[in-house]
Each structure stands twice: as structure tokens, then as C-alpha cells.
């Protein structure tokens, strides 16, 4: 299968001097569900944000779907970004706007300024947005302000917003870390479905091995800014686990 993300020798040094990524080489194939593991501070968020240049990498190469991400500027960068949807731990919805408006913002990369200011007038956009809300089971919440939704519902609105981008890739940064186990699993199920049915490539950082085993087709583990493991979820045994999380770590399973 063809690879959709290619990273070569990627480095990120923050202005504070922290060397967060120390030469990442990674190739992700189309249709993979790639789980990022690693201790807090190992560089997972930094890596995900470098992929769509929310963070500027210090050096290295990023190619996504054949395009040179680092060289892209202005319009070109916007067009790359709209193919890559992002899901966040804190959902990052605009809390005092309705679910529908939040989902419509997923179309911003495809819209001119005038068009985006008149979203509600564009029947077609609204139709797709409602369809995406229905897909995550929230159609009747369309006109509710997102601040009044539960965490799990907010994350599903965020998924609907991501769908609005019609993305090839979904980057998810600890999408279920602020949810209870049952809700976490239901949110992961939506990501799993997008991966299988819509053939979207997913890169998702997680803290739970159980979820990694259930949904991941591949696991990449970071430690101190370097890749220390790259394989299938089944390959992570007691010994590998201790390598990733340190000698003192116990495997905590949440089903």
C-alpha cells in the first residue's frame, strides 16, 4: 500500500531550549490506525502538531500525500491542512456557538471569507453538517451551544467537524484522555469506523494499552523525543512495555 505520511530526520527544539523531537523517521501507510504511545513529555503532541505545522519543525522533512509540508506557504499550506483533520484532548470547540456552527467551521479551509460569514445561507453546507452530526448521533443537538454538552458529546461534535473537512488523515491528540472509560471507548469506536469504512488514516496518541490493542493496527512509541518501538500492538509484551514506560511502570488495563 502507498505511504501517505513520510517523515525524515524531524527535529523540534523549542525556544526554551527543550529538544522535544530528536530525529524522527516515520512512514505511515494509507489506511493505517497508528497509535502513538509514550510517557508524558515524550513528544507526542509536538510530533502531531508538526505534521500540520501548528508547530514549526526545526529541521527535517515532512511529506504528506506527496506534498512537501515544510515548503508550503499561505494558500498551499491551507490546502494541505484541510486534508488533515485534528481532534484534541480538550475538544477545542467554540463553546458559546451551536454544534452546527462548530461543525460548519470544518469547511473553513474550502471557503472564502464571504462564504464562511454566510454559512447558514448555504443549504448544501448545512445539509452536509447535519448529516455529519447525525453520523455521530447528535442530530438533535444541532442548535445547542456546545458548552452545554457532555465531554463525550463534545468530542463527537469535534469528530463531526473533522468529517466536514473530508480529510484523508485524522490526527488525534489523546482524544479520550478526559473521558470516562465507557465514553472513551464509544469515541474510539467512531475513529475506528472512519478508519475502516472511510479509509481515513488515523494517528492517535493514547495512554491506554487496552485501547491501543483494540483499535490500533500499528503502535509507535516515543521516549524522550525518539522512536523506541515500532510494530504491531500484539508485539508489546511486559518487556517492551517497561522499555517504553520505564522500569517502575505497571500495566494498567481499563476495559
Amino acid at each position: 500500500m502507498k505511504s501517505i505520511i513520510e517523515l525524515k530526520n524531524l527535529h523540534k527544539v523549542y525556544a526554551t531550549g527543550t529538544h522535544a523531537l530528536k530525529g524522527i523517521d516515520l512512514e505511515v501507510k494509507e489506511g493505517e490506525f497508528c497509535i502513538l504511545l509514550g510517557l508524558s513529555g515524550s513528544g507526542k503532541s509536538t510530533l502531531l502538531r508538526c505534521l500540520n505545522r501548528l508547530i514549526e519543525p526545526t529541521s527535517g522533512e515532512i511529506h504528506i500525500d506527496g506534498e512537501d509540508v515544510i515548503a508550503a506557504k499561505g494558500q498551499k499550506l491551507r490546502f494541505i491542512r484541510r486534508k488533515i483533520a485534528m481532534i484534541f484532548q480538550q475538544f477545542n470547540l467554540i463553546k458559546n456557538l451551536s454544534s452546527l456552527t462548530n461543525v460548519l467551521t470544518g469547511k473553513l479551509g474550502y471557503s472564502t471569507l464571504i462564504h464562511s460569514l454566510t454559512f447558514p445561507q448555504h443549504k448544501n453546507d448545512v445539509k452536509i453538517a447535519l448529516e455529519n452530526l447525525r453520523r455521530v448521533g447528535l442530530k438533535e443537538f444541532a442548535n445547542k451551544k456546545t458548552r452545554n454538552l457532555s465531554g463525550g458529546q463534545q468530542q463527537r461534535v469535534a469528530i463531526a467537524r473533522a468529517l466536514m473537512q473530508d480529510p484523508k488523515i485524522i490526527l488525534a491528540d489523546e482524544p479520550v484522555a478526559s473521558l470516562d472509560p465507557a465514553t472513551a471507548d464509544s469515541v474510539m469506536r467512531y475513529l475506528g469506523e472512519l478508519n475502516k469504512k472511510d479509509n481515513m488514516t488515523v494517528i492517535c496518541s493514547l495512554h491506554f494499552l487496552s485501547l491501543a490493542r483494540k483499535y490500533g493496527t500499528r503502535v509507535v512509541a516515543l521516549k524522550d523525543g525518539k522512536i523506541v518501538f515500532d510494530g504491531t500492538p500484539e508485539e508489546i509484551d511486559e518487556k517492551k512495555f517497561k522499555e517504553i514506560y520505564g522500569e517502575d511502570a505497571e500495566e494498567v488495563e481499563i476495559r
Binding site: I80, R81, N92, T105, G109, L117, M164
Partner: peptide
């Protein structure tokens, strides 16, 4: 909250759109 700004930027919105939304 910088979160929504990040999220809107990531959709491919322009700077002005990011400010507005």
C-alpha cells in the same frame, strides 16, 4: 482559550477566518 484557535487553524482556515471564528 488558545485551544479553539489551534483547532480552527488546523481546518485550513485563513488568519482572518481564524480570528473571526
Amino acid at each position: 482559550d488558545p485551544g479553539p484557535v489551534e483547532a480552527i487553524k488546523a481546518t485550513g482556515a485563513s488568519t482572518l477566518q481564524t480570528w473571526l471564528f
